[in-house]
Amino acid sequence: MGTPLGDFVRTRRDSIQPQALGLPDHGRRRSPGLRRSDVAARAGISVEYLTRIEQGRDRNPSVAVLNALADALALGPAERGHLRYLSKITGGECTAHARPEPPSREVRPSVLETLRLLEPGIAMVTNRLGDILAWTATFGTVTEGSGLLEAGEPNLTRYVFTDARARKFFVAWDDVADEQAFDLWLGPKIENAEWFTAELAPLAGPDFTRRMNRHVVPPRGVLRIGHPGGCELRLRRETLDLASDAQQLVVMLPADEETAAAVERLRDRAGEDRPRLRAIS
């Protein structure tokens, strides 16, 4: 049985062409990408040891081996961080069957005050499971009619994979789906992510499960929203990690003048009826 760490190493190995690393192409191969012998030689480990890691028979490679594998696979900073995280959870995977305590939905007063100061900007507080915990009035205006905030406890990940409206609301739906699936690996607690994944997988189907097994670090480019009012919004995202709370403050900024004007029109249209700052707790 494989492990998240082994799956990631194998997936990265399969995705790299030899010429990209200056290695000779030995012709036809049984699988795409690099041979195990290529990676093992670059990392200074044996092929047999690399095989054990990929197949999940070695769950505790040393930091030195992880760094060597990262170098051998030419991983970027985000991918290296993901490799270390997967090594941590693979070495001590949770086997408990009791449902863990859910992550806190409380947002600190100082964070809520920060959201107020960001008005009339577009901002929200969320966690890596996709729970949307608080948002500015303008975030509510921008997402109005999409169905995202209709649930009593809105969750972006569940919305993306189970609500048909999400595929129209997010113009580049595949990119957003990649982001939400990847972030589950970074959930508040490993146990929370495992439970959430187990509950979501039967509802979301292969669009979700295949992404969970790809381990591809998403680029997180400009977010494109197809607003139900008929305009397309292009938003740049700045994320502030609230590490002590296992939460994030996400601020969305218009990426161009057309988007800035469209957001202003939406705010004007909402007028006095626009909802105020909202927090779920």
Results as ranks from 00 to 15, higher is better:
Pro4Ser: 14
Leu5Gly: 00
Asp7Ile: 04
Arg10Gln: 02
Thr11Asn: 15
Arg12Phe: 04
Arg13Met: 00
Asp14His: 11
Pro18Thr: 06
Gln19Ser: 13
Ala20Asp: 10
Asp25Ile: 10
Asp25Cys: 11
His26Cys: 12
Gly27Asn: 09
Arg28Ser: 15
Arg29Thr: 08
Gly33Pro: 00
Arg35Asn: 02
Arg35Cys: 04
Ala41Met: 11
Ala41Leu: 11
Ala43Asn: 05
Ser46Asn: 07
Tyr49Gly: 00
Ile53Phe: 03
Ile53Asn: 03
Glu54Ile: 02
Gln55Thr: 13
Gly56Asp: 04
Gly56Phe: 03
Asp58Arg: 10
Arg59Lys: 11
Ala68Leu: 10
Leu69Trp: 00
Leu69Ile: 03
Ala70Ile: 04
Leu75Asp: 00
Leu75Val: 10
Gly76Gln: 13
Pro77Glu: 09
Glu79Asp: 15
Gly81Thr: 01
His82Val: 08
Tyr85Asn: 15
Tyr85Thr: 14
Ser87Phe: 06
Glu93Asp: 10
Thr95Val: 12
His97Trp: 11
Arg99Pro: 05
Arg99Met: 11
Arg99Ile: 11
Glu101Gln: 15
Pro102Cys: 03
Arg105Cys: 14
Glu106Asp: 14
Val107Glu: 03
Glu113Met: 11
Thr114Asn: 10
Arg116Glu: 11
Gly121Asp: 08
Gly121Pro: 07
Ile122Phe: 04
Ala123Val: 06
Arg128Thr: 05
Arg128Tyr: 09
Leu129Met: 14
Gly130Pro: 00
Ala137Val: 06
Thr138Asp: 12
Gly140Leu: 02
Thr141Asp: 07
Thr141Val: 15
Glu144Asp: 12
Gly147Asn: 00
Gly147Asp: 02
Gly152Phe: 10
Gly152Asn: 12
Glu153Trp: 13
Pro154Asn: 04
Phe161Trp: 09
Asp163Glu: 08
Asp163Ser: 07
Asp163Leu: 01
Phe170Trp: 09
Val171Phe: 02
Ala172Ile: 03
Trp173Asn: 05
Asp174Ala: 13
Asp175Met: 14
Asp175Ile: 12
Asp175Glu: 15
Val176Thr: 07
Ala177Glu: 00
Ala181Lys: 00
Phe182Lys: 00
Pro188Lys: 05
Lys189Ser: 15
Asn192Met: 08
Ala193Ser: 15
Phe196Val: 01
Thr197Trp: 00
Leu200Trp: 01
Ala204Ile: 06
Pro206Thr: 11
Pro206Trp: 04
Arg211Thr: 05
His215Arg: 08
Val217Gly: 04
Val222Ala: 03
Ile225Leu: 09
Gly226Asp: 12
His227Asp: 01
Pro228Thr: 08
Gly230Ser: 07
Gly230His: 07
Cys231Arg: 11
Arg237Lys: 13
Leu240Ala: 08
Asp241Val: 14
Gln248His: 15
Val250Asn: 15
Met252Val: 07
Ala261His: 12
Ala262Gly: 05
Ala262Asp: 05
Val263Cys: 06
Glu264Asp: 15
Glu264Pro: 09
Arg265Tyr: 05
Asp273Thr: 10
Arg276Val: 13
Arg278Cys: 13
Ala279Ser: 14
